[in-house]
Every structure is written in C-alpha cells, then in structure tokens.
C-alpha cells in the first residue's frame, strides 16, 4: 500500500499554489489543518525525508521546501 497523507498534501498544495517556499513551516501556517503530531512536527522541522515517509507527495515537498534541496 502506498503511503498517502491527504492532510499533508492538502496543506502543501495550498502553499505550493501560493508559491510559498520555506525551510520549515510555522505554527501559524499549520493553523486550521487537521494534522497528526508526526505530520505537524515534520512540517515545523522541514524534515523532507520524514514528510516523504509520512505520505507527502514528493513534487509538493520539493515545491514548498525548495531551500532544503541542494540541487
């Protein structure tokens, strides 16, 4: 079964469409989103590997957390 987190992909889609790029997200940006504790901490840390493991789409991870990618 492929890991897919709709809450993660929903928040990342909104940020990507607003052309937001971040090293990590803030509490304010997470407000109103129904996220698990693990998802919340991964977003706040900008932990791109953990986000991937939790079921965030890699294309969205890259668009939002672009500064985290050396290439």
């Amino acid at each position: 079964m492929i890991a897919v987190s709709y809450p993660l992909n929903k928040i990342l889609t909104g940020l990507a469409r607003a052309h937001v790029t971040r090293e990590k997200l803030s509490d304010a940006e997470l407000a109103g989103h129904d996220l698990s504790d693990a998802e919340r901490s991964a977003l706040l840390a900008g932990d791109i590997r953990r986000l991937y493991d939790l079921g965030a789409n890699p294309y969205l991870i890259r668009r939002v957390f672009r500064p985290r990618f050396p290439i």
Binding site: R49, Y52, P58, Y59, R62, P70, I71
Partner: peptide, 9 residues
C-alpha cells in the same frame, strides 16, 4: 529522475 524524494538528483 528522482524529484522531491530522499534520492532527489
């Protein structure tokens, strides 16, 4: 190609 995954690049 690997894009946005841990193996990006």
């Amino acid at each position: 190609h690997w894009v946005g995954t841990p193996e990006t690049g």
